[in-house]
Design a protein around this nucleic acid. Structure first.
Length: 412
RNA sequence: GUGAGUUUAGCUCAGUUGGUUAGAGCGCCAGAUUGUGGUUCUGGAGGUCGUGGGUUCGAGACCCACACCUCACCCCA
């Protein structure tokens, strides 16, 4: 939970609408004057009745934390953090009102090495999960440069929102939308070479250099992207990396690199996103500290893993062996055995009550427990336990040590 | 925030122009098989038909309001 004042204005206009606001406790209407209330303008009333909100992401609270603890922190400061965040959205496929973000940030360093390290982390994680991904890369400075060149510097948001749709609605509709958003025909005409940009990353950068030659900030952005690409190559990054000028990201606080990761084999939206923010801590009174970070969406990654059937089959099998419960005497005897089995590193459980054999066996079957040990009166007398291998139905009469050996054999 | 759809058994769903006791498959429980699971057979339990109101002799079905869930747009992880 954060103060609303901390949250508001950091995520763009759209983001502000998606903040969950918390009603003040107590008599929350007592400070609202009647006129305001009667005017029924929810925006005006809101500032009186709500001063707290649920966190929208982990980056802004992190920036606040860094400022608060600036004297205890050694910079550059690296941290990861996994926590839920909330968005007052209508939920739908791949979109949740509450979801977990896994954030990785480095704050207090301008070096583009940090961007590269984050790319390596992304590569590492998705490779290990077995998800094919495409990393899309852009830079806010390039977007600012584009706006500057076409003479519409103050329309950055309108421009990016429109060109972001290029893939979806096509060139003509984008131009139409730009016009509707109030851009001059001249500006739109100047934008065309950028929308037509093709080729690989290097070719795009070359053409961009020409187009943005008159924009200092634009050239700076190109330079940053080039550096990141070079560093990524040098560090052996082996994952698809695409310069995508239509990648905008609505979060207001980004100033440099913008990163978004998409799963190639599913329709899921972005499963990771982030970028560089030069002055997020400045808002809380600590200027001049630049940070960069990315955030992984846990649920979406889970959804992708499920859709692509990438969860290993053995994630569901926990228990290796079930000891059937024959009664009080037998179960006491089993408690000693189970201790030995567990000490050997095998996860075992004793059925907690004396139920019918059929029920206990079905339980083992349902849970896909590979072995069952039966200890009744005979077994207690001879010390030879009945070990049953569920898959084949074979049964063995073995001492406890040999049971353990046998279970371990197959486990390897 | 805008728009659309759904809601009937634990789950997935059927239910005709409004008509008697609301069905199926799967699952669950029990038995066939009192120390042996997956297959099969037999039997059984389980439903305020999302909520509230209305029309009607009669509503799961028609009308209204609300709620919930799902999906799309917007935006995003």
């Amino acid at each position: 939970m954060e103060n609303l004042s901390t949250l508001m204005g950091k995520y763009g206009e759209e983001g502000d609408k998606l903040l969950f606001k918390i009603l003040n406790s107590g008599d929350y209407l007592k400070d609202v004057n009647k006129e305001t209330l009667m005017a029924a303008d929810s925006n005006k009333v809101q500032s009186f009745i709500s001063e707290k909100g649920l966190r929208y992401d982990l980056t802004v609270p992190f920036a606040r934390f860094v400022v608060q603890h600036r004297n205890e922190i050694a910079f550059p400061f690296k941290r990861y953090q996994i926590q839920p965040v909330w968005r007052a959205d209508r939920p739908q496929k791949g979109r949740y009102r509450e979801f977990y973000q896994c954030d990785v940030d480095v704050i207090g360093s301008d070096s583009l090495m940090n961007e590269t390290e984050l790319l390596k982390i992304i590569e590492d994680i998705y490779t290990r999960l077995g998800i094919n991904v495409l990393i899309k890369l852009n830079n806010r400075k390039i977007l600012a440069g584009i706006a500057e060149i076409i003479g519409e510097s103050d329309r950055l948001v309108d421009i990016t929102v429109a060109i972001d749709k290029l893939d979806k609605i096509g060139l003509e509709s984008v131009n139409q939308e730009l016009e509707e958003r109030g851009l001059t025909r001249e500006a739109i005409a100047k934008l065309q070479p950028i929308l037509h940009l093709g080729g690989d990353n290097r070719q795009k950068l070359l053409s961009l250099k020409e187009i943005l030659a008159a924009s200092q900030v634009g050239l700076k952005g190109i330079d940053e992207i080039e550096t990141v690409l070079n560093l990524a190559e040098a560090s052996g990054l082996n994952i698809k990396l695409e310069l995508d000028l239509t990648l905008a990201r609505g979060l207001n606080y980004y100033t440099g690199a913008i990163i978004e990761v998409k799963s190639i084999d599913t329709q899921m939206g972005s499963i990771c996103g982030g970028g560089r923010y030069d002055d997020l801590t400045g808002i809380f009174g600590l200027p001049g500290v630049s940070g960069v970070g990315v955030s992984f969406g846990a649920e979406r990654i889970y959804d992708v893993l499920t859709e692509l059937n990438l969860f290993p089959a053995d994630t569901l099998t926990g228990t290796q062996v079930l000891l059937v419960n024959f009664g009080e005497k037998e179960s006491l005897y089993c408690l000693k055995l189970i201790h030995e089995i567990r000490k050997a590193g095998i996860s075992a459980e004793l059925y907690p009550e004396m139920a019918k054999m059929k029920k206990q066996m079905s339980y083992a079957d349902d849970k896909q427990i590979p072995y069952v040990i039966l200890v009744g009166e005979d077994e207690m007398q001879t010390g030879l336990l009945t070990l049953k291998k569920m898959q084949s139905g074979e049964q063995f009469k073995l001492a406890i040590e040999d049971c353990i050996k046998k279970i371990k054999e197959i486990k390897e």
